[in-house]
Design a protein around this nucleic acid. Structure first.
Lengths: 145, 145
DNA sequence: TATTGTTATACTCTATAACTATA
DNA sequence: TATAGTTATAGAGTATAACAATA
């Protein structure tokens, strides 16, 4: 029991991971999205219409996985598959109006959650927290390249 | 762009979530475990031989899910199903010698990871980090009961 | 010949419902 | 009647391999 502080810090982060995951998954489910589909939709929101191939690369996921995710998003009315104007093999996954609104909402929701979690803290404390997390992230990347 | 600091803090935590998850999943996979199976094995390590029913309660998971997880752990030689001494309906999931060793290793690995991430930081800084995370966790629990 | 997206197959995790054996 | 664990079925996410159409 010489130094339990690091272990406590890790415990808190793991707990935060779980709670944050549950919170976000529940919020997404309320809109008819799974985390993976939301990730794809969000990606689309940033990049505009994109081929499935490029989506697979952007999400570091197998092409087959994108087929399934897009199938689900099409069924839910979030995106459509449009023909690529110059490559008849490819399809351009394109957000519908509804999909674009939801994606914008996700973006706003993220800022809202951040405000809920950190908005009340004095800025210097949030700054210190960010610095500490940066250090931890750096160490994690060093050991796991 | 009035106050991007909370958003940055959330970004860091989400990134940490992803990296930590990958790091742990890879470590578990190297030992032939998935995260869910490791969770069950770890639970068993803390409680000793346990019925599947109680495992389902402890992991907040459907009984059927426990059947599948235990099937996998039995196939991997981590646990066995032993008859319950007083209730012939129930089985006591029991770690094998190998399973107990792996579980102990998981425990040690967690402390190691904590040291890797936070061991070099001065104790007061780690303390501040824990405090900040506690505050965030409290807010998350308040809003999501 | 290389690339895009598909079908086919398989595995993990999860859930609900119906069933068996036991309490 | 209630409980423990199973089978049966289902759906999400992921992966690999083989294949079609197109480049």
């Amino acid at each position: 029991m010489a130094d339990a502080l690091p272990a406590t810090a890790l415990d808190r982060i793991l707990e935060l991971t779980v709670l944050l995951g549950e919170d976000m998954t529940a919020g997404l489910a309320a809109q008819g999205l799974t985390p993976s589909r939301a990730h794809l939709l969000f990606c689309l929101h940033e990049r505009g219409p994109t081929t499935q191939r490029d989506l697979a690369r952007a999400l570091t996921v197998a092409p087959r996985t994108v087929t399934g995710l897009v199938d689900g998003l099409v069924a839910g009315g979030f995106v459509t598959r449009e023909p690529h104007p110059r490559d008849r093999r490819a399809t351009l996954v394109t957000p519908t109006e509804h999909g674009a609104e939801v994606a914008a909402g996700l973006h706003a929701g993220r800022a809202e959650l951040a405000a809920r979690l950190f908005g009340d803290l004095p800025a210097p404390q949030v700054g210190d927290l960010v610095d500490a997390l940066d250090r931890v992230l750096r160490r994690l990347r060093e050991a796991t390249p």
